[in-house]
Design a protein around this nucleic acid. Structure first.
Length: 270
DNA sequence: AATGTAAGCAACCGCCTATCA
DNA sequence: CTGATAGGCGGTTGCTTACAT
């Protein structure tokens, strides 16, 4: 049985919101909050479905929304987080306070994707023989010397680990997820919580976008199967499992292949 | 000035998961 | 355990505006 869309009730308005509707919704939420979106329009006197109200509030009316053009820094963050997370717009938005997933999605499709494609084409044209290395995600001991672009995340009471990423991929449909010899990175990193997250923003570094030749042999040793990960320090969540189910990607112990045939590696040195 | 085309963006649609009875 | 419901998410649509011819 297929559930009917919530907006199919007769008489519910669709399309752009009027100023009056905005004022009604804003006023109601400021007074009563939005604990129940489905019941909200009825109580507020709006001829909209709850989903529509929620979307309007979250994407436009909420006082937390930051308006205006994206800064270069914000765009770089989106680009890098997209390389890490793929089209997980809400997760990316969690790293950009005041920006909504919808807004980020729009910016990606209208600006950043084209920009990356152009950049990639220029690079390809300038050196067509250059092989693009496979993107590589590494988690390594913070005490080790590494020349890789390094993101430090050092939550209190946690061992010092670094998340490192090397990639030359500019594939606009690139999506990613990680598992570590059967242990997935989402069990280590709570992407949704900026307070507890191991991952803060990757530092912008020109080398991040440079093309390097990487052979499989260069990838350092992977974590032994019996290695204990410091899960006790990091809240578990099930986003990996959800993502896996939604996207249906196949993955093995240390490589992932997406629909476009792109694979990548990660390793964990402890 | 009129028309066609592209770009930008708000909003909708459908699916998924979490929750609860 | 099962089914219904609500909230959330990503993909997509379609309207509006800007720009080109």
């Amino acid at each position: 049985m297929v559930r009917a869309p919530c907006c199919e009730k007769k008489g519910l308005k669709k399309g752009p919101w009027s100023l009056e509707e905005d004022e009604i919704l804003t006023s109601y939420i400021q007074k009563h909050g939005h604990s129940n979106w489905r019941a909200l329009p009825k109580h507020a006197g709006l001829l909209r479905c709850g989903k529509s109200c929620r979307l309007r509030w979250i994407n436009y009316l909420s006082p937390d929304i930051k308006r205006g053009n994206f800064t270069n820094e914000e765009e770089q963050i989106i680009i890098q987080m997209h390389h890490l997370l793929g089209n997980r717009w809400s997760a990316i938005a969690a790293k950009l306070p005041g920006r909504t997933d919808n807004e980020i999605k729009n910016v990606w499709h209208t600006h950043l994707k084209k920009r990356l494609l152009n950049t990639n084409n220029n690079q390809t044209n300038s050196n067509t023989k250059k092989r693009v290395s496979k993107p590589k995600i590494k988690i390594s001991d913070s005490n080790s010397n590494s020349s890789c672009l390094t993101q430090s995340y050092e939550p209190s009471n946690a061992p010092n680990y670094f998340l490192e990423m090397e990639t030359t991929s500019s594939n606009d449909t690139f999506s990613s997820d990680f598992s570590l010899q059967g242990k997935n990175i989402d069990n280590i990193i709570n992407w949704e919580d900026p307070e507890d997250s191991l991952v803060t923003m990757l530092e912008i570094d020109e080398s991040f976008w440079s093309e390097t030749i990487t052979t499989d042999d260069e990838i350092s040793s992977t974590i032994p199967l019996n290695t204990e990960l410091p899960n006790q320090h990091y809240p578990l969540n099930n986003s990996f499992e959800n993502f896996q189910n939604q996207e249906g990607y196949g993955y093995s112990s240390n490589s992932i292949v997406n629909d476009d045939g792109m694979d990548f590696w990660y390793d964990l040195n402890v």
